[in-house]
Design a protein around this nucleic acid. Structure first.
Lengths: 191, 191
DNA sequence: ATAGTAAATGAATAATTATTCGACTTACAT
DNA sequence: ATGTAAGTCGAATAATTATTCATTTACTAT
């Protein structure tokens, strides 16, 4: 039996790839840099990923799935729709503040033309429960009756832009500001 | 007297740079491709811009300033704050739908690490009137009293994300949808 | 222990691509 | 008309960087 792949190395590769992309931009991402930052040889990187493109796609998929899990894990079947929504949104926002590099990495690559169509499709499929949750809110007369995609764009866009701003300023939201931001999003969506 | 630089070539360079970045992603942007798409020789490109980085920065600055102009040109001193706000937002959104490539290009580069700090500062300075307009709305008790930057993030994020979605779907908003989107943004900001 | 297998290494190589350069053309002032 | 400063061209060059590969190392099952 052979020596197994090292989970820690894999984790280091993912972390450093995100870190490098977020600090120096994608244009400057070099395989040799990733390897060095992860503490392995350049050639070793190719044991784990057959190309730079494969590396980016793997980190993207991994991260995006993790983010979606955070979002949906908090969609508990609470009888109070508003509370459920607030819990979901808040948990998601807090996660994004805790790991802005993950959120920003994903954002940077959705429209980069580098992510395989199949990978995009896979992540979108996993988001179906969110659509159902919003549709249910519309049926109960709590959410504005308009295209679900426009509603999601409003919500996600606000979060993304806020995180970008916070990252640039190297700060996070106070509890009051977190509530303020939620108020804006809820007021935008409520009927 | 020498032969002057060709304004049409310059315009073609800018247009094709944006087009290429938006269709194939920044990673795939090659100077030779830009030159070919603009109908000039590779060497000629270097008459207009001394490096790839200078090219990107110029296209960024140009485009960003144009977008800010659209936004502020519509901030007429209308006595009705709501109407002024609605006009501004609508004109901005319509412009973004008409030239999504400009908006997406700018978005893609703000956090790329490629745009010079000085260029970013220059564009932000030009946005001061928008801050004043929002502060005025707060003073009149029409806009929620919270950090202006969080308010801007809410507005800008929603627009950006919506344009990204529309572009992916190759569609634009119907008149009804445009109103719906405005309603969400206004409800988010109003007291 | 030991053999077998795959991971790990990093220098060498292959590709890719930004940039330069010398020959040539063009537009304008005189 | 003519000189000239600058534009134009695209092949050649210089850099950069992804990828390969011969070799070494480490792990696991027997």
């Amino acid at each position: 039996m052979p020596k197994p792949k090292d989970e820690q190395k894999l984790a280091a590769i993912h972390l450093q790839t995100m870190r490098l992309v977020n600090t120096t931009g994608f244009a400057a991402l070099k395989m040799a840099d990733v390897a060095q930052a992860a503490g392995i040889a350049t050639g070793t990187l190719y044991v784990y990923y057959k190309s730079k493109e494969a590396l980016i796609n793997a980190v993207y998929l991994n991260t995006k799935l993790e983010i979606i899990d955070v979002l949906l894990d908090n969609a508990h079947a609470n009888p109070d729709y508003f509370l459920t929504f607030k819990n979901m949104w808040t948990a998601y926002m807090q996660y994004c503040m805790q790991y802005p590099e993950k959120m920003l990495f994903v954002e940077q690559f959705i429209y980069s033309g580098l992510i395989a169509e199949e990978v995009i499709a896979q992540t979108e499929a996993k988001l179906i429960p969110l659509n159902q949750f919003l549709t249910y809110g519309q049926q109960k007369g709590l959410i504005k009756r308009m295209d679900i995609e426009l509603i999601k764009a409003q919500m996600q866009g606000a979060i993304t832009e806020t995180i970008k701003f916070l990252t640039k300023q190297q700060q996070t939201l106070t509890a009051v500001q977190l509530n303020d931001c939620f108020a804006m999003t809820w007021d935008a969506l409520r009927r």
